[in-house]
Design a protein around this nucleic acid. Structure first.
Length: 287
DNA sequence: TAGCCGATCCCCT
DNA sequence: GGGGATCGGCTAA
């Protein structure tokens, strides 16, 4: 079986409505579906009525963070979104921002992602169309977070994309701001902490490491990355040079047969912040 | 640096 | 009851 990993615009338009319909249903059904509802002290964060003339369609309305990427950015197929997180369409990788309760902002540029395509993808939690309370975020509107517990003690952070049950796993960040807080969080949360100071490249080089470093846990499940006040996405400042995106096999899904070999993991070639480097795949990456 | 392996517990069948 | 989108310590090369 072959799969087209670069769906065209027609795929874009026909799948969107389907998932949005489910979201409406989800919002009606579950209190968690309204996780992004602002608390009494917060401003209303509904979608912008109009966009400013100079504002990118990818930015949220004026009531969100000024640089916060809006819903439209996430409304693309999983592979396109996984690449867009690395800046392949926007020329610069996106920055994940986490604002802690005390106002501290932690920032990391996304350098590694994995795409999970939905029901047909044997490695996805939504394989075969499975929809359970745990993976519900995968079926919610693009930009919805899907946070799950792995091996009983770690968290992984996914972002729902276009297409039912499709999402993108965030695997690694280049820490840009709040490194000392990240180090503290990692040292506190990681298993068997020995007190050894973690190197910068050990802070966010893995899906669960970045969750620890950004204090992201199950409470973030089903929240909306386009509207949330504690976690959001921004455009990165332009980097020093153009980056090459490597497409490699995904990690840790050996049980998934042929799907385990498909090049659905994406990372920036040469980045020291990536969790797993695939030399063979890098040879195929275009400069 | 790479490979091996145990920890640990949620979630699904 | 068993598997798992991980991590980190230990060992060998």
């Amino acid at each position: 079986m072959t799969v087209d990993f670069t769906p065209g615009p027609e795929t874009l338009s026909c799948r969107t409505g389907q998932k949005r319909q489910r979201v409406l249903e989800a919002d009606r059904e579950s209190p968690q579906g309204r996780a992004q509802t602002p608390s009494p002290g917060e401003p209303c964060l509904g979608p912008p009525a109009t966009l400013g003339p100079r504002r990118s369609i990818y930015f949220s309305g004026p009531k969100s963070h000024s640089a916060q990427l809006g819903s439209d950015f996430f409304d693309q197929p999983a592979v396109a979104l996984a690449r867009a997180f690395l800046g392949q369409q926007t020329d610069c990788p996106q920055v994940l921002v986490r604002r802690l309760d005390d106002g501290t902002e932690l920032r990391g540029r996304i350098v590694e992602t994995e795409a999970y395509l939905g029901p047909e993808d044997e490695a996805a939690h939504s394989r075969g169309g499975r929809q359970t309370p745990r993976n519900r975020g995968m079926f919610m509107k693009p930009g919805t977070l899907y946070v799950y517990i792995i091996y009983g003690m770690y968290f992984c952070l996914n972002v729902s994309s276009q297409g039912d049950g499709a999402c993108v796993l965030l695997r690694a960040l280049e820490p840009l701001g709040g490194l000392e807080t990240m180090r503290q969080l990692r040292s506190t949360l990681r298993k068997g902490a020995t007190g050894r100071a973690l190197k910068d490249r050990e802070l966010c080089s893995g899906p669960s490491k970045l969750c620890q470093a950004l204090a992201i846990d199950k409470s973030f499940d089903q929240r909306d990355l386009a509207e949330d006040r504690a976690v959001w996405l921004e455009r990165s400042p332009p980097g020093p040079s153009e980056s090459v995106v490597v497409a490699a096999a995904r990690v840790g899904i050996g049980h998934a047969g042929e799907w385990a070999r498909k090049p659905l993991r994406f990372y920036l070639r040469g980045s020291p912040w990536v969790s797993v480097v695939d030399r063979a795949a890098e040879q195929n990456a275009q400069a």
